[in-house]
């Protein structure tokens, strides 16, 4: 197996690794975008690698190579993937496609279930829940038990938090990284991190709206400690993510991003993009090569 399958892949994985540590120096909003872009690039690169591996391997199966007019004497091993590896890669790709399809299907089902939600909907539930429902109409679902447990200011924190999810379209980031993580399970921790960071993002927006980070911190803590709450949390809910770290983050000042971190972040993303382009180039090169023969 030749190295050019792996070089872009390794490049992107290294970038992904550095992107993991960036958010602690960044405002949550920048962190979400950086991580999402890195995860999507890594997924594309990995999928392209599988495609090329599959293509190269399968094209060397004697029957297929004859059909392609492939001259095995000249080009056998040229692309460096033995047939069994090609078939394995094709199977993996099929599996990935099925898993991604299932995830997207589930997202659309959820959409249908909450399609009736139009604006603020108060539901009768003993658990204190509040979550944002994105969509063509969209809105926020809040349980009456949560409302009755909070005072006026805390209620506006909850709404400001959910509104931030809607206004900044956090569901798009979450669905993107979730789709990637469904396809490639090793990206699961990144999806979790993006989810957590969208909560932090919404917390900061809410703090700005109500004019107090302290109030947001106490509200989150109070919601989390409500009896029967048990931290039941939807991904876009006031109780989502690790509550303790969210509260802690709100009581210390926001990190000021030094210029060198910004530069580093940009270079990480650019390198990841280059890796993807390289991979794409290899694939195109391979396809034209195979097509001409």
């Amino acid at each position: 197996m030749s190295a050019h399958f792996l070089v872009p892949f390794l490049l992107v994985i290294v970038c992904l690794g550095s992107a993991w540590f960036l958010p602690r120096f960044l405002a949550p909003s920048v962190g979400v975008v950086t991580l999402t872009v890195s995860v999507v690039l890594a997924t594309c690169t990995t999928l392209l690698m599988f495609m090329q591996l599959g293509g190269a391997g399968i094209s060397e199966v004697p029957f297929v190579s004859d059909a392609l007019g492939w001259c095995r004497a000249l080009y056998g091993g040229d692309h460096g993937a033995p047939p069994f590896l090609g078939i394995a890669a094709a199977l993996v790709l099929g599996l990935i496609a099925a898993r991604m399809g299932r995830y997207v299907h589930r997202v659309f089902q959820d959409r249908k279930v909450f399609g009736d939600v139009d604006g603020v909907e108060v539901v009768l539930l003993s658990q204190p829940v509040a979550f944002a429902v994105p969509g063509p109409r969209g809105g926020v679902v809040i349980s009456n038990s949560l409302l009755s447990a909070l005072d006026r200011h805390e209620r506006s924190v909850v709404l400001a938090h959910e509104n931030a999810h809607l206004r900044h379209r956090h569901h798009l980031y979450i669905h993107l990284v979730e789709t990637c993580a469904t396809a490639l399970p090793f990206l699961r921790p990144f999806a979790r991190k993006v989810k957590y960071l969208t909560e932090r993002w919404a917390d900061e927006v809410a703090a700005e709206r109500v004019g107090s980070r302290d109030l947001v911190a106490t509200t989150i803590a109070r919601v989390a400690l409500l009896p029967s709450s048990e931290m039941r949390a939807h991904s876009l809910s006031i109780g989502g993510g690790n509550v303790v770290t969210r509260v802690e983050a709100l009581v210390v000042p926001l990190p000021a991003t030094p210029v060198r971190v910004t530069l580093f972040g940009c270079s990480v993303v650019i390198t990841a993009a280059l890796g993807l382009i390289l991979q794409l180039h290899h694939l195109v090169d391979f396809v034209t090569h195979a097509g001409h023969l």
């Binding site: 279930v113 939600v117 539901v123 829940v129 989810k195 939807h234």
Partner: peptide, 13 residues
């Protein structure tokens, strides 16, 4: 959406 709310508000953390 009652049972859906329960599943949507799944155990995260």
């Amino acid at each position: 959406s009652s049972d859906r709310v329960a599943t949507m508000s799944h155990f995260l953390d």
